[in-house]
């Protein structure tokens, strides 16, 4: 039971991080380089999870992804997949909720690079994609790492959204943070402590690792 829950927790966190890494880079790139009037709107949407209570996001996801909604009904009919009270559901919730934790560090990393680096790459005949892969991303390793770790750690610690959209199905949607709440309610303090301590130690180790690695990266640049 304990291991199943921890494994599920890290599975959700890992998949969320990978997906957000892939969609976070183009979005951060767009925000950091656009002059479009839409920019403040997109920035606001990306940042909303920072200020909204998780239960609000969870509530709307429940409404919009439920089997009786247009989106939920469509997915259920065509892909035979239920988006609420399911693994897929908490994955969608986690991705939306951790959005700013991936996009913000990458965005500020890209913005901190001198514009002349990108222009130099263009004048050397390199396309936008080549410039991104060979110049921009390799020079913001710190930011990429920060985005990855914050997203991962934040997903591991997520409670409200997951509870609202996923419920508490063992092995399917019960994540560690929910299990703690559950065990405390049932007065199983020992088991609750086991979950809590595990999360504490893992989070501490991950963050420590990031700061050590970041120090190394910036050491190279000095």
């Amino acid at each position: 039971m304990f291991f199943e829950t921890m494994l599920l927790t890290f599975k959700v966190a890992l998949i969320t991080t990978i997906i957000l890494f892939l969609i976070g880079i183009p979005i951060a790139l767009w925000i950091s380089s656009t002059k479009s009037r839409l920019k403040p709107i997109i920035e606001t949407i990306v940042s909303m999870p920072l200020v909204l209570p998780p239960s609000v996001i969870g509530f709307y996801l429940l409404i919009f992804l439920g089997p009786s909604s247009a989106v939920g009904g469509f997915v259920e009919e065509w892909f035979d997949m239920r988006l609420v009270l399911s693994f897929e559901g908490i994955l969608i919730g986690s991705i939306l909720f951790s959005f700013p934790f991936m996009v913000h560090p990458i965005q500020s990393g890209l913005q901190s690079l001198p514009k002349s680096l990108i222009e130099a790459s263009y004048t050397l005949g390199k396309s936008k994609l080549q410039t991104l892969m060979h110049v921009q991303l390799p020079n913001i390793k710190n930011s990429l790492l920060t985005g990855i770790v914050l997203t991962f750690a934040h997903t591991v610690g997520e409670f409200g959204v997951v509870l609202m959209i996923g419920g508490n199905i063992p092995g399917e949607t019960r994540l560690a943070s929910i299990a703690i709440y559950d065990e405390v309610e049932a007065l199983n303090y020992d088991l609750a402590n086991q979950y809590a301590l595990t999360l504490f130690v893992i989070s501490f180790s991950i963050l420590l690792l990031v700061y050590v690695i970041n120090r190394k990266f910036s050491g190279v640049l000095r």
Binding site: S116, L117, A120, H134, V135
Partner: peptide, 11 residues
């Protein structure tokens, strides 16, 4: 193009 701030790729 040679830029005033060199614009060498640090990586």
């Amino acid at each position: 193009f040679v830029f005033q701030d060199y614009a060498l790729f640090p990586n």
